[in-house]
C-alpha cells in the first residue's frame, strides 16, 4: 500500500471546477451571481455545498426556500453518488467549469434521496463501507473497529483530511498475505442509460477476473470513453474500493 501513496493522494485531491447557477424560475429579491467552487471528486455534493446554499439564500426570501437540490442539464444529481462519479457519468464531455443548476423548490421525490442533515450522508457512507467490507472480509474489519475509528474515517472524508482518512482506511484495505487477496472485490457499475446501478462481485484481485464483468458495460458504450482503459479502471478500483465506488480517476 505504501507504494501507492502518490496515486492515493492524486485520487484524493482530484478536484472538479464547478459553476453553480440559480435556477431561472426561483424567486429572488436581488440578482443571484453564479458561485464557483472546486469540488473534491471523492466527496458528496451535499457535504461540500454549504457555501453554495448560503450564497444563494442571501438573495432569496426564506419562504421561497425548500430543500436544496442540484441538477445538470435536466438530470437531478444524486448526492449519494461520489461527485467524481456524477461528473464522469453525466458531464465528462463538457467544457469546464461544470455548470450545475441550483434549485430550492419542487424537490424531485422520485429521483433523489432527501438529505436534511450530514448524519444522512454519514449513514450512507458508513453503510457503503460496511457493505464493501462484508465482501472483502466478511465484515470482520469494520466490525472490529471501534466507534471512534468509524468516526475518524468519516471525519477524514468530511474535513478532507487525507492522512486521517487513510490511517483508518488502510485497515480496510489489508488482507493476510497467505490469503493473497480479498474474499471478493466490491465494486459498483453505474450506468447512464438506465436509471439504476447494481453490485457485482469478482473473485480475487487480478484484472483477468474483473474483465469479464467490466467488458459488458464497456461494450455497450455506457461508460464514459475516458474510462475505457481497463488498466486505468483497475487502478482506480484498487484505490477507491472503500471510498467505496468505482469511477474516480
Amino acid at each position: 500500500m505504501a507504494d501507492d501513496k502518490d496515486v492515493l493522494r492524486d485520487v484524493w485531491f482530484g478536484r472538479i471546477p464547478t459553476c453553480f447557477t440559480l435556477y431561472q424560475d426561483e424567486v429572488t429579491e436581488r440578482e443571484a451571481e453564479p458561485f464557483y467552487l472546486l469540488l473534491p471528486r471523492v466527496s458528496y455534493l451535499t457535504l461540500v455545498t454549504d457555501k453554495v446554499k448560503k450564497h444563494f439564500l442571501k438573495a432569496m426570501k426564506q419562504e421561497d426556500v425548500e430543500e436544496m437540490w442540484l441538477e445538470y442539464e435536466g438530470i437531478p444529481l444524486k448526492w449519494h453518488y461520489p461527485i467524481g462519479v456524477l461528473f464522469d457519468l453525466h458531464a465528462s464531455n463538457t467544457a469546464l467549469p461544470w455548470s450545475v443548476t441550483v434549485h430550492f423548490k419542487s424537490f424531485p421525490e422520485r429521483d433523489l434521496l432527501h438529505c436534511p442533515t450530514n448524519s444522512v450522508i454519514e449513514a450512507h457512507f458508513m453503510s457503503s463501507i460496511k457493505e464493501a467490507d462484508t465482501l472483502k472480509h466478511k465484515g470482520q474489519v469494520i466490525n472490529d473497529m471501534q466507534k471512534k475509528d468509524h468516526k475518524q474515517l468519516w471525519m477524514g472524508l468530511q474535513n478532507d483530511k487525507f492522512d486521517q482518512f487513510w490511517a483508518m482506511n488502510r485497515k480496510l484495505m489489508e488482507y493476510p498475505t497467505e490469503e493473497g487477496g480479498f474474499r471478493y472485490i466490491p465494486f459498483r457499475i453505474y450506468q447512464v442509460l438506465h436509471k439504476f446501478h447494481y453490485t457485482r462481485t469478482g473473485k480475487k484481485t487480478t484484472s483477468a477476473h474483473l474483465n469479464p464483468y467490466l467488458a459488458e458495460p464497456y461494450d455497450e458504450n455506457i461508460m464514459p470513453a475516458e474510462h475505457s482503459s481497463h488498466k486505468e479502471t483497475e487502478q482506480a478500483l484498487l484505490i477507491s474500493l472503500t471510498v467505496p465506488h468505482l469511477g474516480e480517476k
Binding site: H124, F196, Y198
Partner: peptide, 16 residues
C-alpha cells in the same frame, strides 16, 4: 435510527 430505517436507492428501480 440511522442503522434501523433509512432512505436508500432501490437497487433495481433506482428510486428512493
Amino acid at each position: 435510527p440511522w442503522d434501523t430505517i433509512t432512505q436508500q436507492e432501490h437497487p433495481l428501480l433506482g428510486q428512493p
